[in-house]
């Protein structure tokens, strides 16, 4: 029983991490038709910024208590700024050429990890964090690492926040309408490009938060982390149906759980394969993903 609880919570933690990356990806794709390959780079930027701040480089920030919260906030802000710069400098000039937009983000996804490893080396760096999050918590008789619970809580908060933003605010309305039919929104006299930057900023913030909390989850940061997470985030986005935040949430839970359980009960690594097989099977049955969005 406690093994199942532990696996479930770890799987949910992994799913939470996927959701933080995939929600932004899904929104960006839904609104702009851009598959943002640089999203993994944004995650890495957030992770390294948090690491940098938590290692005592930023006054006030540190590895424990409020200092760590400040470090995570710093990471999120840096990730958000990086996303905005990415949108304004790399993606925006190619507004009329979606294929080239994807290619440009591919270039960024190669350049940023290379730059990070140039500055801090290719070896994984130990990620500092509060002692409280490194210990375990008893849940239903199982001792679960606290950082899983933090990740799950963060993902739920982000999901709720995104839901509120999309359903209750005017900007959210524009984004939702843009996902449905961009041309119509433009025809109604609304500048969709502002929504583009907004969506990139939100996606970047979520990814950077994922990077910061992923550092806790894995215990270290390395330049390639973002890219490997990104691939599973892609799987989540396709499975959930592109452009749908709720679809991404459901899919990340399913995929995180499948991966954890298969990795534990069969040989390690088979869980990662199982996820891909699951994706292939789903596409054979429903080529448009779980929520039936256009793929």
């Amino acid at each position: 029983m406690d093994t199942v609880v532990l696996l479930t919570l770890t799987g949910l933690g992994l799913g939470a991490l996927y959701f933080l990356v995939a929600s932004g990806l899904s929104l960006i794709f839904g609104l702009m038709d851009v598959l943002n390959f640089a999203h993994g780079a944004l995650l890495s930027v957030g992770a390294y910024a948090t690491w940098w701040a938590a290692s005592g480089h930023l006054p006030g920030a540190g590895s424990g208590g409020l200092g760590f919260v400040l470090a995570v906030l710093f990471g999120v802000v840096v990730g958000t700024l990086a996303a905005i710069v990415l949108e304004l400098v790399v993606v925006r000039p190619l507004y009329t050429r979606p294929r080239e937009q994807v290619l440009a983000t591919v270039g960024v996804s190669l350049a940023v990890p290379a730059l990070l490893s140039g500055i801090w080396g290719t070896d994984p760096l130990t990620f500092p964090g509060p002692e409280a999050l490194k210990s375990t918590v008893g849940v239903l008789g199982a001792s679960v690492p606290a950082n899983r619970l933090v990740l799950i809580a963060a993902a739920v908060l982000v999901w709720a926040g995104l839901k509120l933003f999309l359903d209750r605010t005017r900007h959210g309305l524009v984004v939702r309408a843009g996902v449905e039919d961009r041309a119509m929104v433009t025809a109604l006299g609304i500048d969709v490009r502002k929504a583009f930057t907004l969506v990139f900023a939100i996606g970047g913030a979520a990814a950077a938060l994922g990077g910061a909390l992923g550092g806790l989850y894995f215990g270290s940061v390395d330049p390639g982390q973002g890219t490997s997470l990104l691939i599973f985030a892609f799987v989540v986005v396709v499975t959930g149906g592109m452009g749908s935040v709720t679809g991404a949430a459901v899919a990340s839970v399913v995929i995180g759980l499948v991966q954890q359980f298969a990795n534990y009960y069969t040989t390690a690594g088979l869980g990662d394969l199982a996820v891909v097989v699951l994706l292939a099977a789903l596409l054979l049955v429903r080529p448009r993903g779980l929520t039936g969005r256009l793929a």
Binding site: F29, D33, L35, V102, I231, F234, V235, V237, V238, M242, D272, L273, V275, V276, V277, L279, A280, L283, L284, P287, G289, A295
Partner: peptide, 21 residues
């Protein structure tokens, strides 16, 4: 034959997932 069942960017992602496997 599997990955071509989806078109556009979906195809890219599926091929990526297979390569990752």
């Amino acid at each position: 034959s599997v990955s071509l069942r989806v078109t556009g960017i979906g195809f890219s992602m599926v091929t990526l997932a297979f390569a990752q496997a």
